[in-house]
Simulated scan of single mutants.
Amino acid sequence: MTSHQTTQTMKPATAAKKLGVYLQATPAEFQEGVISRNELNALQTDPPEWLVELRRNGPHPRPVVAAKLGISIAGLARGGVTEALTTEQIDALKKDSPEWLQRERATQAEVRKEAARIKEKNAAEADQPGRPRS
C-alpha cells in the first residue's frame, strides 16, 4: 500500500498573514490563487522583490503596525487606526507621539511587566517541592 500525500494549500489571506504582509497590497496573482506550503516556504526563504518591498515600506497589516508602534492591536483601534499604514506613516506617528500612542505604550509596558511578574511567581512556585499547584 502506497501512501499518497496531498499538497497542503492555503488561501491567500492565510499566506499573507504568515508572511506578515497586507493582502490587498500583494500582486493580483498572489491574491487570486492558492498557495502551497512549498510555495510559502520558497517565499519565506527567497522572497521576490515585491515581498521585500512590502515588508520594508508597507502598507503593513494591523499586527505589524501594532508591533512597530509597541502597542496592542486593540490599542490601535482605541487610537482610531483602522487601516493599514506604510512605514513612513508609522515613523511619522512615532515622531509626533500623540497622546493616545503614549498612553497605549504605557499600557503595553504595564501588561509586559505584569506578565513577567506572573511568570516569575509561577517559576518560583514550581521550584518549591510539596506545594500544591493551582
Rank of each mutant, 00 (worst) to 15 (best):
M1L: 10
S3R: 14
H4Q: 14
H4Y: 14
H4R: 13
H4I: 15
Q5M: 08
Q5F: 08
T7D: 15
A13L: 07
T14N: 11
T14K: 14
A16Q: 04
K17Q: 13
L19Y: 08
G20S: 13
G20D: 13
G20E: 14
V21E: 07
V21Q: 06
V21C: 06
Q24H: 11
A25H: 14
E29S: 14
Q31L: 08
Q31P: 10
G33F: 01
V34C: 08
S36A: 07
L40R: 08
N41Y: 03
N41F: 03
A42Y: 02
L43Y: 12
Q44V: 11
D46K: 03
P48F: 02
W50A: 07
W50N: 08
E53G: 00
L54F: 04
R55V: 00
R55W: 00
R55Y: 00
R55G: 01
R56L: 11
G58F: 02
P63M: 00
P63G: 01
V64W: 03
V64H: 01
V65Y: 10
V65T: 13
A66S: 04
A66L: 03
A67L: 11
A67Y: 07
K68C: 02
K68R: 14
L69P: 04
L69H: 03
G70T: 02
S72L: 07
I73E: 08
G75Y: 02
L76G: 06
A77Q: 07
A77Y: 04
G80E: 03
G80N: 03
V81E: 05
A84S: 06
L85H: 04
T86M: 00
E88W: 00
I90P: 03
K94A: 01
K95T: 10
P98H: 06
P98M: 06
P98C: 05
E99M: 06
W100C: 04
L101A: 13
Q102A: 09
R105V: 10
T107R: 14
Q108M: 15
V111Q: 15
K113N: 08
E114L: 12
A115I: 05
A116Y: 05
R117N: 12
R117I: 11
I118P: 00
K119A: 14
E120W: 09
E120A: 15
E120T: 12
K121I: 15
K121M: 15
N122W: 09
A123C: 05
E125N: 12
A126D: 13
A126T: 10
D127E: 15
Q128V: 15
Q128M: 13
Q128I: 15
P129G: 09
G130E: 07
R131V: 14
R131D: 04
S134H: 05
